[in-house]
Design a protein around this nucleic acid. Structure first.
Lengths: 200, 200
DNA sequence: GCATTAACATACAATCTGTATGTATCCTGA
DNA sequence: TCAGGATACATACAGATTGTATGTTAATGC
């Protein structure tokens, strides 16, 4: 019985190989870093050759982009899922989304991929664009809704969301580094509460 | 007249060579990036050989660290200088320091060195430690003083300073990327004002 | 079925990093 | 002051990595 000799369509082969490469790359990129992981190591872990890698991806950076893309998508989905249940109450939705964000960012390697190597390798603009494209809109829409409801002073939404997002990111990094979670959540909530309070 | 044949002490030679290497590396690391800049290119620009580089620095990363260290020190000094004139008024000092920060971060290459490549190559902890060591305490002390004065609700200072610092950093990146400066400054001031307002 | 294309594997060229080794210059103690 | 050692380099080398070019096998379209 020739297990692997089964006849497969080109699409199936492509999908499987790409998935194997992305999974192997994700594992190594997060265990070490983008720079410290070589393509020979990746293809060995994926069980293919470098020929396959360079057939499916333009270069090492393109493979990294695919990994980061998946990760950003997953995080965005988790946040959206948590927040959409409170669509009618923007304040609660934002809180739920915030919790979901920190939970999502505890998956090992995500902070490195999305907050350290990602911006350095792909540029911050690329990461911003990904977030936007994956519909990570809980924060922006939450803020906008709270402004509409008069809960927050009216301000340029996009910049404010970016700056708050940066604070979220830094909190995730600090928490992963072992800093006291509660202190960072307290500080973050104080910032958000401050925005809300100052509307009155 | 043999211009360069002048007899120099070892210390002078070391100081000059290290300075040349750091200057050349800074230029190239910021024009391209850490990863895209090779040591042969650096030493060529510095007018020495790779032997000199590896005599004075353990490896490429150590040279990068020296570059980032200088830059962090310079930024911290500019902020301190602007803020110390208002030592008696923490609120004003913080505002002055904030202005100085954005001015300092407009020096070409600083955002890449301190906010993108730095954290990725050296780790965020290393950057935090640098800031701390260079006495970049305007933000922390400003917040603490405002809490003491009852202008801001009492909160864990260090985490709050880190999160606000992250927002500052993101604003600097956005501004450098060409986003409307005023919107980001407005959003940032709203966050800080919010903290102050909510104390009442 | 057969020509074409896709999916790889293998081989190669160009770099790059870090180290080992060699040499000139400086410093130090007798 | 000068001889021996240390310091500041330059040169040469080994190993590894990236991207490309080429070859081969398997699927697909006509």
């Amino acid at each position: 019985m020739q297990a692997t000799k089964t006849r497969r369509s080109n699409k199936d082969r492509t999908d499987a190989t790409r998935a194997d490469l992305i999974a192997a790359a994700r594992k190594l990129f997060t265990e070490k870093s983008y720079a410290e992981t070589g393509t020979p190591e990746i293809v060995a872990a994926a069980g293919v050759t470098r020929g396959a890698l360079y057939h499916h991806f333009a270069d090492k950076q393109a493979l990294f982009r695919a990994v980061v893309e998946m990760e950003a998508k997953a995080v965005a989905a988790e946040i959206e899922r948590a927040a959409e249940r409170f669509d009618e109450n923007p304040g609660i939705a934002l809180l739920a989304g915030s919790d979901a964000y920190f939970t999502a960012m505890r998956v090992p390697g995500r902070t490195r991929l999305l907050l350290l190597d990602g911006p350095a390798v792909l540029g911050r603009a690329a990461l911003d664009e990904m977030d936007l494209r994956h519909g990570n809109r809980t924060l922006r829409e939450g803020l906008a809704a709270m402004m509409d409801a008069g809960l927050i002073r009216r301000l340029p939404v996009e910049p404010l969301a970016e700056l708050l997002g940066a604070a979220f990111d830094r909190a995730a990094l600090a928490i992963e580094a072992g800093s006291p979670t509660d202190d960072y959540l307290t500080a973050l909530h104080a910032i958000i509460d401050g925005l809300a309070q100052s509307a009155k």
